[in-house]
Structures are given as C-alpha cells and as structure tokens.
C-alpha cells in the first residue's frame, strides 16, 4: 500500500515535472522541471527493481546533463533569455501531441501484454548481472557506447573551440 502510494507520488512528480518543463516560459525553470522529472523517473526505476540504474540516472542525468545545460545557459547570457511565448503555437502543438497521445493510449489500453508469471524481485538482478551482461553478451554495446562517448567528447571539443585561423 505504502509502496503504491510512493510510486504514485513519483509518477505524478515525473509527469508534473514534464508538463511544467514543456509549458513554463523561462528556460531555467524549464531545466528545473526536467530535473524534477528525472528525479521522478529515478524513483520509478527504483520501484521497477533497479537501484543501480536509478543511481546512474541521478548521477549522469541530473548530475551531468542538467548541469551541463545550466552551464550552457550561463556561458551565454542570451541562451537563458526568456523568449516570447506564442499561445497559438502551444495550442497547436498540444493538439498534435494529444493526437499522438490519444492514439498510443488507446493502443496501450487495448493491448494484452505477455506478462511474466510473476514479476521478479529486485534481488534477482543486481549490479553483478549488469556488469556480466555488459562484458559478455552485450559486449558490442559496451564497446560501441565507449566509442560513442569518446567521439562525442572529441567532436564537442573540436566544434566548440574558438577558431584559430583568421583567414
């Protein structure tokens, strides 16, 4: 019962944060909204039996990505500037998004998913299994991810550096 209440709270936090982020005019508030959502999502992961992933979510997403965004805002003043908020655009895009939401929601509600006999407990799959999976079955993923990250760092450094040439 309590677990249900807690997870419901996390879910509401995630959704409220997302909607807030989508609608609030100020950029910084928007990032805060994202942070709330990420926090809620981390809670959901916890409920779904994976404390490790939840920790990663908080570390990398909230600690890394959101902070990078805030930094980007700070580096360039106008990045943070409050832009004009066009009502009509919000309404139109909401209609489009709700169209998508309605279609998908109907499908999700009508589909019978092949549920497992009983949901596995959290203890069954810990960090060891993840590490093992990464290094054996999913080794291409691990390698690929590593390459991706290094490419991203090199690219980001290269792109963002000030130009040396004056030609």
């Amino acid at each position: 019962m309590i677990a249900t209440l807690v997870i419901a709270a996390f879910m509401i936090l995630a959704m409220a944060g997302a909607i807030y982020a989508a609608l609030v005019p100020h950029t910084l508030h928007c990032i805060i909204g994202l942070g709330l959502t990420l926090f809620g999502v981390a809670g959901i992961y916890l409920y779904l039996g994976s404390p490790f992933v939840a920790a990663m979510q908080i570390l990398i997403y909230i600690g890394g990505i959101s902070v990078a965004m805030v930094f980007a805002l700070m580096l360039s003043v106008s990045l943070a500037k409050k832009m004009k908020h066009s009502e009509i655009k919000v309404i139109l895009s909401s209609i489009a998004a709700i169209l998508f939401l309605a279609v998908m929601a109907r499908l999700i509600m009508t589909t019978e998913f092949p549920l497992r006999e009983e949901p596995a407990g959290a203890a069954a799959w810990g960090v060891e299994q993840i590490g093992h999976g990464f290094l054996t079955t999913y080794s291409p993923l691990f390698i690929g991810l590593a390459i991706c990250l290094s490419v991203a760092i090199i690219a980001a450094v290269l792109v963002a550096r000030r130009e040396a040439d004056k030609s």
């Binding site: 139109l92 169209l99 998508f100 279609v103 998908m104 109907r106 499908l107």
Partner: peptide
C-alpha cells in the same frame, strides 16, 4: 524546423491510428 517535426508527428499519429 518545428513545423517539420510537427508534420512528422501528425503524419505518424495518423498512420498509427490507421495501423491501430
């Protein structure tokens, strides 16, 4: 670019409705 994305979303939603 937002109009591009929006038209993509609408078309996908309609196609999804049709498929569903």
């Amino acid at each position: 670019v937002q109009a591009y994305i929006a038209s993509g979303v609408v078309v996908v939603a309609l196609a999804g409705y049709f498929l569903g």
